[in-house]
Computed example of a mutant assay.
Amino acid sequence: MPTLEDTTLLRSGAHASGHRFDGERRWAAALSLGFETRDEGADAPVTRLARRWHRGPLRVQRPFYPEGKTGCCHVYLLHPPGGLVSGDELHISASVAEGGHALLTTPAAAKLYKADSHGVAWGQHTRLQVARNAILEYLPQETIAFDGSRGRQTTTIELEPGARTLGWEVLALGRPASDLPFATGALEQRFHLSQNGIPLWLERQLLDPAHRRFTGRWGQGGATVQATLWAVGLDDETAAIDALREQLPDNHRWAVTRRRGVLLLRYLGNSRNEAWALCEQAWHLLRPLLTGVPAHTPRIWLT
């Protein structure tokens, strides 16, 4: 029979071994990056990864300059486990100082695994800060949510006046090719984008297969893949939207709009490849308009 100590531990969500089985269980990992500009005698200032700190299995290797020494600084975010399980708590933060230009991406798809028998959730929280006249591109590869996954994902973007940013989030629900749909579990996504302290885009989305919104035509409509692309700092948003509508595939699975200086492109369908190709093509169209330089595909996407 359990001892009084065992009973007390179980009521608190803990086990005699020291492990917890409630919402207080945390296997934390964190990564903080800081980009600065430096005058190194080149024709233009150079963006350098001046600060990096990590805890747990989150880190980066050396930065890359595929666009030239004074071009955009490319950095790959590495999470060696490759996915999130119950109790994982990831915190990623990055800041770009005035005049800098950085691009963040990942080497592979992130996986959100099925929750344990206690239903403990995971969490992933990203905070991006962009200073005046700086540029940050946040282009992670897609996220795959396994059936039964439970967790919360937040993205917070804080811009100073004159800051520019372009990014996306591609989410695939379940693994339909293996006949393993996203039939149980619950995900929550939150986006918070502000400039000079003023909120421009606030969004909260719940993905629960048990809710009628998940299959209703007025909601998710049974779609298994969704994507959101954002861009802030375009000189002519109308011209950018016209270019997207003229050059992207003509179908009903995507739409583009703008509000309060934020351009938003949405995809809702059933193909990861289609969603990724759409976002990448949109990036190729928007990047020259936003940054003045053509898109340069990160090498890691081709491996």
Rank of each mutant, 00 (worst) to 15 (best):
M1I: 10
M1P: 13
M1A: 15
P2R: 09
L4M: 07
L4Q: 11
E5G: 03
L9C: 09
L10N: 08
R11A: 15
H19Y: 08
H19F: 09
F21W: 15
D22C: 12
E24Q: 13
A28L: 01
S32W: 07
L33V: 06
G34M: 06
E36F: 04
T37V: 10
E40P: 02
W53V: 09
Q61G: 14
P63W: 04
P66H: 01
C72G: 03
L78F: 08
P81S: 10
V85N: 07
G87K: 01
D88E: 03
L90P: 00
S93C: 08
S93I: 02
S93P: 02
E98D: 11
A102V: 06
L104C: 01
T106K: 08
K111V: 14
L112N: 02
K114Y: 05
G123E: 15
A131W: 10
L136N: 09
L136I: 07
E137W: 03
L139V: 05
Q141F: 10
T154A: 15
T155N: 13
T155A: 15
E158I: 04
L159M: 07
E160Y: 07
E160K: 10
L166C: 11
E169V: 00
S178T: 06
S178G: 09
F182N: 00
T184E: 01
T184L: 01
A186L: 11
E188L: 11
F191A: 00
L193W: 02
S194I: 05
E203N: 13
R204I: 09
A210P: 04
R213L: 14
G216Y: 07
G219F: 11
Q220K: 09
Q220F: 10
A223Y: 06
T224F: 01
A227M: 01
G233K: 02
G233C: 05
E246R: 13
E246W: 05
Q247S: 14
D250I: 03
R258F: 03
R259E: 11
R260W: 02
G261Q: 02
V262G: 01
Y267I: 01
Y267S: 05
E274L: 05
E274Q: 11
G292R: 09
L302Q: 13
